[in-house]
Every structure is written in structure tokens, then in C-alpha cells.
Amino acid sequence: MNTAPRAHCSLDTDGRITFRLRPPTAMPPRLLLVLRPKKGRPEEHTHTLDLEPHGEEGEFRAVLEPLPRLEEGRWDTYLLPGPDAGRERLRPGLRDLRALVDGGPPGRPSPVAVRVPYATKDGFLAIRTWLRTAHAEAGPVDIADGTITVRARLHGARLEEGAEAVLRLRGTTDTLHGVPVRPARDGGLAFTVACADLVASGSRVWDVFLRPAADAPLTRVGRLLDDVADRKGVFVYPRVTVGGSAVRPYYTVDNDLAVEVTALG
């Protein structure tokens, strides 16, 4: 039976997260956030919040303000019950993420910082964060007549002359396929990729970027600005058969857009 304490949290449109919980001890408690390190690496980034009495008797509250911005990754949450006590993982309680549902305001400034509280696969509370200089938020992805059309909205940068969508063959830096960008009716942008143009390299994956201007660095296209922390298994698109290959857009474990090409047979 999982006896870890449970924390409720709510998030507002500025990215502020409020945590509420009932610590099992009366010692001055704190809340600890730990950036999950890559496999085999030590923990390097932590953030500690004071828990203060609030509301009903025995309930405490901590507020994670929009600043400082958290490094991109997955932050596990812990309770520090007292000065000499070990840390305890927190279970998720109620998560009020209504402020994220509509994607928030258009034209977010740089850097684009995103936070989404979520439940891990093993049942604990964590926060998925993104921190990017610029970001192209993917909207509808339409698949028809051997093409993939993506609508998106740019944040943290401006769309200028020479802008294009760029698909880069994963594992390379110079195998690129560019397609023109056109304005969309909602004030965003759209681009269309012919699936036949991607199959010549065999069974590979193409990562999707936007180049906002002719000489600008590549900006990743993904879907970050809502309440879904892990999109890969939620948004599943059909395959397009082109010759002896199947082409399928999908979202990676980081919620970035990619296109997979798989040989059939």
C-alpha cells in the first residue's frame, strides 16, 4: 500500500503553481523539487519551497512562483518533514489545470517557459517543464492525399521573410528538407509536407522545425501549451502508405513533432 503523503496543486495562467498538503508530522515542513537526472548521472538541480499553515487545521501551502524559471525536464516532488528527516515522494491529489486547457495567450515572449504537473507511471507527483528560446506550437495535423499539413503558432520569435518549415533527418545535422510556410486564417501559420519526399532515406525519423526567418536558428515544432504532459500515447495519427513505406507523424516523449518512415514488408 502506498502511504506517501498526497499533494493537491493548481496552476494559473502565469505558470504559478500552488501546492496544498497535510504533512504527517508537526515539524516545520518544506517541499523539495528535484530535476530528474539522465540515467547514470547524479542529481544537479533542486528547488526548495517553504510550506506554511493555510486554510483548514493541519493543511499547509507552498507556492512555486513563475520566477525563477525551472530548467527543462521532469521535476519529482518530495516532502521534507523536518530538519533531520529524509525526503518522501509525494502522491498526486487533485490537479487543477484549467488555466492550461486553451493554450493560454498568443505570442508568448522569449524565453517560452511551460510547467505541467502530472502523475508519473509509478503514481507520484511530478512537474514537466519546458524552457526554450522560441517555440512553434503545433495545432491540427491533417493527413490527406499523401501529404501532412501542420498548423502552428509561433511564440518567442517573429515570422519574417524567408521563413520555412524544416524537417531534419534524426542523427544528422545537414540532411534537411524544407517546405514553404503560409499564413493561416487564425493568425498562425501552416505548411504541407509531401510524404513521398521523405521515403528515399529508408526507415528513419524526421524531426520537425520552423525557421522563423532566412538566417534564424531552427525552432522546434511541438505541442506544449496545454494540460497534457505526455502526448505520445494520446495523440496517435494514421499512417500514409507511399510505395513500400509507411509515413506517420507522431509526438516524441518530449511532446515534439516528428515524422516516422517505416519500410513495409
Rank of each mutant, 00 (worst) to 15 (best):
V179L: 00
R204V: 12
G265F: 11
G107R: 03
Y250H: 15
M1F: 08
P249Q: 14
D230M: 11
F209V: 01
A152M: 10
G222W: 06
R22T: 10
W206D: 01
P180Y: 11
R168Q: 08
R87L: 05
R6A: 15
A138Q: 04
S203F: 04
R41W: 12
L176M: 12
R185P: 00
P66C: 14
A26D: 08
L32A: 05
E57M: 13
L33Q: 07
L64M: 00
E260H: 08
R231G: 05
V116T: 14
D76I: 15
Y78D: 00
E164C: 14
N2Q: 08
G243Y: 06
V261T: 13
H177I: 06
R220F: 11
W75H: 03
L176G: 14
A184T: 02
R91T: 04
S110Y: 10
D14H: 13
D227Q: 06
K39S: 12
I143Y: 13
A213L: 02
D96K: 01
I148R: 04
G187C: 04
L35H: 11
A85Y: 10
P24R: 00
A126V: 03
F191A: 03
M27E: 09
H8P: 01
T172I: 08
E160D: 10
G243A: 11
G187K: 02
D76M: 12
E59R: 09
V240Q: 12
E161S: 06
T18S: 10
P83M: 09
D174Q: 12
H155C: 03
